[in-house]
């Protein structure tokens, strides 16, 4: 199909910009390890209470300012509901839901992910700034959805 000359120029510039955007996204994802949370481990949503790891939700220290949070989600609470870590801590959240789909967002950070029955989701966040953060459920999960939250305290 033949195109108008100006139109060809426009398309080359526009498609070029899109390809650059893709390049940046790909570079960040694969070279800098900033890809979206994509953990692929299975878990039985009906057997979380007896799961060796998820039967005991809590904050675990792994090493030098490195923490792991084992977290369960259910209508309408996060467990643990209060998390305290020191400033600069690198925290890996391992999360599983006991009932419906939930979402997890900590405003003012890039921690934002879905937790879907059948899967363990994993996401790591470094808390550079001290302060009080909230973790909110950002996928509708039932009548009490707007009450589902937890706090993260980052101490100096």
């Amino acid at each position: 199909m033949k195109m108008n000359k100006m139109e060809e120029i426009w398309m080359i510039i526009a498609v070029g910009l899109i390809i650059i955007a893709m390049g940046i996204t790909g570079y960040q994802a694969f070279a800098m390890g900033m890809g979206p949370p994509s953990h692929q481990e299975h878990i039985d949503p009906q057997a979380i209470e007896s799961h060796p790891e998820f039967s005991e939700p809590g904050v675990y220290e792994l090493g030098d300012n490195q923490y792991e949070v084992i977290m369960t989600l259910q209508a309408f609470e996060f467990q643990p509901g209060e998390i305290t870590v020191p400033e600069g801590a690198e925290v890996t959240f391992r999360m599983a839901t006991k009932d419906v789909v939930h979402g997890v967002n900590v405003p003012h950070t890039n921690l934002n992910t879905m937790v879907v029955p059948g899967f363990i989701q994993e996401i790591t966040q470094t808390f550079h700034e001290a302060g009080e953060y909230i973790m909110v459920c950002n996928e509708y999960c039932g009548v009490g959805h707007h009450m589902m939250s937890a706090t993260i305290t980052v101490e100096e």
Binding site: N105, P107, H108, V136, H146
Partner: peptide, 18 residues
Amino acid sequence: LGSPRRTEYTTYGGSETA
């Protein structure tokens, strides 16, 4: 700023962020 969609008005117990 992090305000979630599909969520009735809430302050999450008076949280400053919210």
